[in-house]
Design a binder for these strands. Structure first.
Lengths: 222, 222
DNA sequence: AACAATCGGTTGCATCTGCAACAAAAGGAG
DNA sequence: CTCCTTTTGTTGCAGATGCAACCGATTGTT
């Protein structure tokens, strides 16, 4: 258990809280660890998400299964990542997603109700915890918003331009943290079509690029 | 000012808080009302969002201006709506968006720091306020997530199917709250192309529809 | 009834983009 | 160095989609 304390401490949910306080708080929060075997469910669609999950070890996937049997991979989680936090915060009664372990994993569950309610004992850090939670959910929301603005574009060119504009100002070289495959996934376009459009844009002088470094050429409006 | 109290009470941020408590809290929260003339800015890109805004009257638009002069309309706000809440929660130093009034408007600003910190006086409702804020941000995040899953689809048909599956189960008739224009905007596709694809799908027996009522026909998997 | 306005459907067309298959670079391991 | 793998760019092609223009139906107003 003690080896997990550093991990928990490095988790954004507990940012600004010392290791000693964390140990005290885990009690207040009704924290309980749980092992999830490979292919086991840490959460099933339909469950009531009355807790926030923290991945301590292993790897899990967040899946949405629609009514027609389709499965969509929404996220892959590793140590330190949270799950079910938005569901719990929004008081969703039945989870629309499942969380399944791709490897033998260990998760920590924190009772959501106890995060909100200030406990009578010495947990002066509840406020910090709630602030962190707000920050986490809000930042995720902004990241989604940013990608949405990209996916609203109807053309690959439009998506590329929007993406690059979120990454830096026109005129300067910038290195993007995604390779072509990951970029194509993020922009939700075909990889080869992305390469093609990049070539075209370079030929037209809209941008220059070399591998994963890009530079928007300023004069090009629209 | 008093006529605004009901409006504030009906705002999700103050759900569960009585009108009398609200009036007390507004003091604690460092609330200050502000008139915004038509075409005036309630917030400018670059501002530090250290407060949450509540629209009391009028209409405002949230705009993002990219580095190349483009302007994107992100939202239209009316009485009761919040703005800058995600920015404040995420501790963003410089707002990437502006909020501009399309009509003479009045907004209420609540100091974000005071929402988080429990005040020493009788404001037992701080906890409720924070819980509401978490819920608001989390629900917005889930709505974004839902739309993103739609926009990740590369075909109009895929987007229609995803959308309808979020609205209800296959086999039953369901009325969608959007007309064709709004639906096309939501799915980020051309309206006529949407009509065309709907016709096609009906002809193929994938779904049936009449105006804004749709029914997915069960047998059709992918 | 006449009219305008809004909404939804249809169609022709040019272009875009997904898809598949292949080619060319760029590492990494032996 | 060679082989293998991974990454990136290229190309042909068919089908999908944006766009613009038009038509018909519906609704509300005078």
């Amino acid at each position: 258990m003690h080896n997990f304390l550093d991990l928990i401490g490095s988790c954004p949910l507990f940012a600004g809280v010392g290791p000693e306080e964390i140990r005290q708080m885990l009690q207040c929060l009704g924290a309980r660890g749980e092992d999830v075997p490979k292919d086991g469910f840490a959460m099933m669609a339909g469950d009531t998400p009355d807790h926030v999950g923290v991945v301590l070890a292993g790897e899990l996937r967040v899946l949405r299964e629609d009514a027609m049997g389709g499965r969509a991979l929404l996220a892959t989680l590793g140590p330190g990542d949270l799950f079910a936090e938005a569901l719990a915060c929004a008081h969703i009664a039945k989870s629309p997603v499942s969380v399944v372990a791709t490897q033998p994993s260990r998760v920590l569950r924190l009772a959501f109700g106890r995060i909100l309610s200030t406990c009578p004992s010495a947990c002066a850090f509840h406020a910090k915890l709630v602030e962190n939670m707000l920050g986490i959910v809000a930042r995720k929301s902004m990241a989604l918003q940013s990608r949405m603005e990209i996916l609203e574009q109807k053309s690959i060119r439009g998506r590329i331009l929007r993406y690059l504009l979120t990454q830096g100002a026109p005129g300067e070289w910038l290195r993007v943290p995604l390779d072509r495959n990951a970029l194509a996934d993020y922009l939700a376009v075909d990889r080869s079509a992305l390469s093609r459009e990049l070539s075209r844009m370079a030929a037209e002088g809209v941008l220059a690029y070399k591998k994963s470094e890009f530079r928007l050429l300023v004069d090009q409006a629209i």
